[in-house]
Structures are given as C-alpha cells and as structure tokens.
Amino acid sequence: MQEFLIRSLDASTIFTIAALGELIGQRSGILNVGVEGVMLFGATLGFITATTTGSYMLGFLLAIAIGGLLGLLHGFFSITLGGDQVVSGMGIWILGFGLTTYIGSPFAGPLGLPRIPSVFGLSPFFFLGIALTAIVWFVLSRTNLGLRIRSVGENPVVAEVSGISVTKTRYLCVVTAGMFMGLAGAIFSLDYNPVWAYNFVMGWGFIALALVFFSMWNPIILIGGSLLFGSLWQVSLNPQLLLPDLMSRYIWRTVPFTITLVMLLLMSTRWFRTKWGATKPEALGQAYVKEG
C-alpha cells in the first residue's frame, strides 16, 4: 500500500509538471495540444543521453533543452507566423511520436543506471513539482510578470497598448512551457519508469492537457487534479490493491481515460461553468497580429 502511494505521488509529479507547462502557455494565450510529443522527445532524448553518457544530469538538461526548443518551434509557428495553434500542436505531437519511435528504438529496454535516490522515501522530483507549482502560482498571481502574462492571454491588444510586448511575453511562456514538458518526459523515462518502449508515454501528455482544462487555469487546483490522476493510474495498473478480480486488468487500464472523459464532460456543462465561473483565457488559441 505504501508502495502504491509512493508510485501515485511520483506519477502525479509528472502530470503536474507537464500540465504546469501547458498552463503557463495557455495563460499567455497559446494552446499547445502537442504536450505528448514534447514529453516523448524529452523522455527519449533524456533517456538516450543518460544511457550513453551515464549522467542523469546531462539527460535532464538535454530533455529540458529539447523541450524549450520545441516550445520555440511552436512559438514560431503560432506567434511569428500566426498559424493555427492546433495544427502546430498536432505537428509537434506527430513529429514527437514519429521521430522518437525511430530514434529511440535502438535503445529499447531498461536504462541500466542505478536508480535516482529517493528523499524521505519519495522521488526528489515530487518536491520539485510542489516547488514549481508554488513558484508558478506566485509568479502568475503576485508578480508584474504574471499580470503581463495573464493580460496577454486575455487580451493582447490591450496588453500591447499598455506597453507590453505580446510577442516577447508569449515566446517566454511557450519556451518555458516546453521546458516543463520536456522535464516531465525525462522524469518519466529516467525516474518513474526507466525503460524505453514504443510510444511509452501512453497518453499522459493528453491527460495533462485535459488537466489544465480541469484546473480552470489555477496551479493549486491543478496539483489536486494531478494527485487524482496519479492515483487513478496506479489503481489501473494494480487493480488488485483495491478491488481484486473485479475486472480484467485491461479494462482497468481504460479507467483513467474514461475518468478524464467524464471529468471533461462535467466541466463542460453549463451547470458547472456557472457554478464555478470557469472562464478560459479570453484570447486562448487566437493568433495576435500587430496593427499598423
């Protein structure tokens, strides 16, 4: 049972960090549906680097760097070229899925490094996740930068006339977002489950995307959602812990996805939206073209 809790928290950490990244981007008005792709890149390149150099540090750094780079690419398509953000996000996901399958398959199998030591029995990344959540919350709600980010996501025209560079702010956010997602991918492949396999992120990126919608763009609610999904995932992997022999283990595997679906539907109902006043960033997904 203790093992189960630890694994749940570890899984939550990955959801949290990936979704925090997406949340930062969305708060600035940039939707990136390619979280899964960025995570796959971070996970695969981090894994390859660590396994070939033997250095965890290099693995994580490379994962963060590639995440930032993909964020930059998404920014280029959606900010500079003003393209459809969904198309660009899809592109990043399919690129990530396709390319990492090819790049990673020679390295299929376990990492072959000693496990990252735990802190108080938990993965050190759990504490990192908490810290990042607190930082993101503080920056978004209490600082000038956060006010700028939120303003750019709500109404870029107003932000621009108030003297804020929409382009710079959005680039800052998408690159940071990409770094978070890349890091989350690397935590998956280097710490949570250090084995490379075909398409092994298994939809976590998409669940992280859904988590941002649940969180109503609030980092604190986000961490709650992550905990729920981290535990759900563990239950779906080890159903015997809770309800032995109730369903086939394969049916259990559908549970996190089904719950995501149900939560998403619940969130979308009129009842929920009026009750909680959930409002997305007004300019989310819209390209901003400077006037004149």
Binding site: L147, S151, E154, N155, V158, A159, V161, S162, T279, E282
Partner: peptide, 8 residues
C-alpha cells in the same frame, strides 16, 4: 472601445 481586460 475600451481597452481594458474584463477578467482583471
């Protein structure tokens, strides 16, 4: 046409 952010 007011240049304000309604949610803020």
């Amino acid at each position: 046409h007011r240049k304000l952010i309604p949610a803020h």
